[in-house]
Write a protein that binds this DNA or RNA. Structure first.
Lengths: 190, 190
DNA sequence: CGTCTATTTGAATGTACTCAAAAGCGGTGG
DNA sequence: CCACCGCTTTTGAGTACATTCAAATAGACG
């Protein structure tokens, strides 16, 4: 039984204790050391995961080896390379632990099984993807309509703790600017 | 009965004809003339919609009146200001018809009702939001990791017909560049 | 055919990037 | 516990990609 994850699920749906036990039985805990990988580009992947402890960054690497950070996930967040997992293709994204991190893996096979046997989970994952979609859209609009300084200011307001938790260069990449430029922004303003 | 929408739903779930009829009964058809609005920022909104015919653009307007195109929807696509509808707040996005357009409105109240009475729809909307999330993420990564010329080239490959269908300035906005710059790109390359 | 808007063209500007090097900080081991 | 080492952040100069503004041309629609 994993209280943090059950609490996350309970925000959206109610489960009997038998359902909770069944759900828990489908999860595979994984512990990753700092700078280790939850997933590496090129590996087969068929899972999503829930972060119990720690923090990870998700990034794509282009042909020149340039890394682009797509996002972060810490306690209480879901993560994974959903596109690759759903298409049953090797991962295109890499997910690296920025601290000692513990996640619970849920394979898509088991997710489907879960949705069949406990239909409330169909609803849970609908709401999960709905929220993920809204966050993505919001962040994409930020990239399109705000200049770099404004994006950083909003990021600091939205995720004040994350700023002290992950390296500035990763935040810069996530916000679509170079680390040098973010550094210059910080000295100019607050 | 709306064959185009039922075909869209049938890609993911199977419905009895009674379920099809019930689903159809929840939909409200709306016809919008060219340059008319399916939704305007500031209006209350509690619906998503499916495009039967025509094409719309979805955009946000900032404090200076600057418009940013978030996306397009044409025959067979779903649209709406999901964030506002779900939060039960006035729309922040505007959705304008670029041609004479027919949509089918589905209010969130009825969507919830539908999911309760026909649980397969819970699955349908999970998959719909899953796909929407993946598209958003892909487009956000494009903004972060590709230069303007590359984004346009990929857009033309991915949506070749859309290029002839909507004004270039809207495509430029969607791709995160000015219309002047997109025009310059086009004369330089193909 | 005429008007209105979209697209193209061009020049000047600016925001953000690249490259390089110094300074700062944290983790690790002595 | 301190000192070193490596990585992150800062600083600065030069550059480039993309923007702004303005005007001319082209295209669409009535």
């Amino acid at each position: 039984m994993y209280p943090a994850l059950l609490a996350n699920v309970a925000q959206y749906i109610s489960l009997t204790s038998a359902e909770q036990a069944y759900f828990s039985s489908l999860l595979v805990p994984l512990r990753v050391a700092r700078f280790g990988y939850v997933l590496q580009a090129g590996q087969p992947t068929r899972s999503l995961f829930f972060v119990v402890r720690g923090c990870v960054r998700t990034y794509a690497t282009d042909a020149h080896g340039q890394e682009t950070v797509l996002g972060f996930a810490w306690e209480g967040w879901w993560g994974g390379d959903a596109a690759s997992a759903m298409a049953a293709r090797p991962a295109t994204l890499t997910i690296q632990a920025l601290e000692t991190t513990e996640v619970l893996l849920l394979s898509l096979e088991r997710l489907e099984q879960l949705c069949t046997r406990v239909p409330a989970f169909e609803r849970f994952f609908r709401l999960l993807f709905q929220n993920a979609f809204l966050l993505e859209q919001r962040q994409r609009l930020a990239l399109l309509q705000w200049p770099a300084a404004e994006r950083y200011a909003r990021f600091c307001r939205q995720y004040p703790r994350l700023r002290q938790r992950v390296a500035q260069k990763y935040i810069a990449s996530y916000l679509g600017m170079t680390p040098e430029f973010l550094s210059a922004l910080r000295t100019r303003h607050g």
